[in-house]
Write a protein that binds this DNA or RNA. Structure first.
Lengths: 202, 202
DNA sequence: GAATCGCTTGATTGATCGCTCAATCAAGCG
DNA sequence: CGCTTGATTGAGCGATCAATCAAGCGATTC
């Protein structure tokens, strides 16, 4: 079986959905960029939605290799890993003049009435991202307050990242992103201050 | 001149863009809901994009009356006003089963290559929202640290709101929104704590 | 070497898209 | 009353959309 065609379709669709969104990407767009003919595409996928599903599955399965590993190479400190991940998105924004954002976030807001399977995959992608942050927070140990809800803070980090990207894209200004990350950094600093005070002798 | 037709088109488009997004809303959708015929629509608007522009102008001009006034009635404390505004979005989420979000945020991520005029209007809507928060922060006076960058915190508040809505919609779970707002509240509390310490006698 | 299989080809379908336009209508004015 | 103006009507345009399908290809199997 020639799995190359299927994979080429998925990777090309991934690119196009990121560049133009799902709805604005036509099947013809995918076909012309892959040099695949419509019959082949519909041999592997029942329809356009199923291509999107495959793309979201690729994101889900590739988070470690494509997202975390590159961002974390050479960064050991768990707290710095969190901001290194944010910096990865920053780089993407800079290299695209603040036009491309988070592919999952884009799709999450674009698809208004998502197929349950699609909504589930969007949620899984968010949840995996959040879990990666949560693991960093766990690894940060007692540098953070003992009573801190780490899952919440991980969720919050995703929230800030998505919101910051949205504004950077809208303003076409990376400094908007930087300012938001700086406030998140200040939040972390305050938490770490509090943890230090808790550990200090009374 | 019968301005009623034009306004009816704008308000209906506003509804539909909120419900289904811009791209998924067809001219035919607008026509059937307004009971207006295509010729009339194109008498007032050169094209579909111009309807979107009119909608964004309506949001821009209506922020005080539609958004701030209802959320702030009976709320005087400037800090509480900020969270009252967030609570307004929360109510919208709850009453739509977490399917509708922030109309501006949706459009900001949906339109991948926006007309400059459209991007500008999206930015203006964000900026006005941020300024409203900033005015609250200014009114909070010395309850916040003296060296606090209030504009930044206002920006950050919008960031959290948009990110929180995105996740609530994706998870179809209002508690996700609540948890994020709770972390933002904790951030405000920490800032106000610090301001109190600064004022305390050394 | 005939049959079978996964896969490819690319013309074609019918629906829907945004949009056009000639015709019609009602109101206002001199 | 004749004429102008602005709004409305609705059939219909060409383009594009996702999706279909019969025919053909090359490798494998019997």
């Amino acid at each position: 079986m020639n799995a190359g065609t299927r994979q080429r379709i998925v990777m090309t669709a991934l690119e196009l959905f990121w560049e133009k969104g799902f709805q604005s990407t036509s099947i013809a767009d995918i076909l012309s960029r892959t040099q695949v003919h419509s019959g082949s595409l519909y041999h592997f996928f029942p329809g356009k939605q199923d291509v999107l599903i495959a793309v979201l599955e690729a994101y889900r399965d590739g988070i470690e290799e494509w997202l975390l590993a590159p961002a974390w190479s050479g960064v050991d400190d768990p707290v710095e890993r969190i901001f290194a991940l944010l910096n990865g998105y920053r780089t993407q924004l800079v290299t695209t003049d603040c036009t491309y954002g988070c592919p999952i976030g884009n799709l999450a807001l674009e698809i208004s009435e998502p197929d349950p399977k699609i909504r589930e995959l969007l949620a899984v992608n968010f949840a995996n991202w959040t879990s990666a942050i949560e693991r960093c927070l766990d690894a940060a140990g007692d540098r953070l307050p003992a009573d801190l809800d780490r899952r919440r803070l991980a969720e919050f980090t995703l929230t800030v990242m998505e919101g910051a990207i949205m504004q950077a894209r809208t303003y076409r200004d990376i400094e908007s992103f930087d300012r938001n990350v700086a406030v998140l950094r200040a939040h972390f600093d305050m938490l770490m201050d509090r943890a230090r005070q808790e550990k200090a002798p009374a």
